[in-house]
Amino acid sequence: MRRQVPLALCFVFGVVMVLIEFSPHPYSKFLYNEVINWSLIITPFALVLGVATLVQTHWIRIRRRAEYWQYSFVVFIGMIVMVTIGIPFGPSHKAFAWLFKYIQTPMDATMFSLLAFFIASASYRAFRARTLEATLLLVAALIVMIGNAPIGDLIWNKIMPFGENLPSTARQWILENPNLSSRRGVILGVSLGVISQSIRIILGIERSYLGGGD
């Protein structure tokens, strides 16, 4: 029963939701809206599950004195402070907004900013024209990169008597032609994969989402 009921529910809802897409009947619209409402109610429970998992993971790290276990206290302090202010007063409260703006935002932005340094270093070391494919990739990347900065056009226009704004034009051409064609192929492949996987789930062939092995 523990497996049959979820499988049956998945089959019924899967088939019904597909049929609803092709029916303009008022009952079908009513059912569609109801299912959306149900899923809206269910979704916040995922947040609860996320918080519970986070607490559990860091609690275990502290108990086992895992490497850098002290940082798990920072997670708890941060969570408790934000929740203590956020739940009773709401996210628009001045204190919550202050914590977000002056603590979370700079920390998050700083972590991301470090990428610029590592990308510069990594591209210098690893970006080599070793093969034909790597050379094509390298040339395309350099054109897109320099076309993405106004200084590219400026330098080109100053030193070359032809092809005004060529770097940005070339960048646009790469994005609109080779990039677009390959992306479309990827999208079509992924979409076909999603359709086949959905059919497998609806028919109960794919059961890994139930957990606990087969």
């Binding site: 510069a120 591209s123 390298l138 320099i146 590219g152």
Partner: peptide, 9 residues
């Protein structure tokens, strides 16, 4: 920065 990375590559 783009010019620098361009030059480095």
């Amino acid at each position: 920065v783009h010019l620098l990375v361009f030059g480095l590559v």
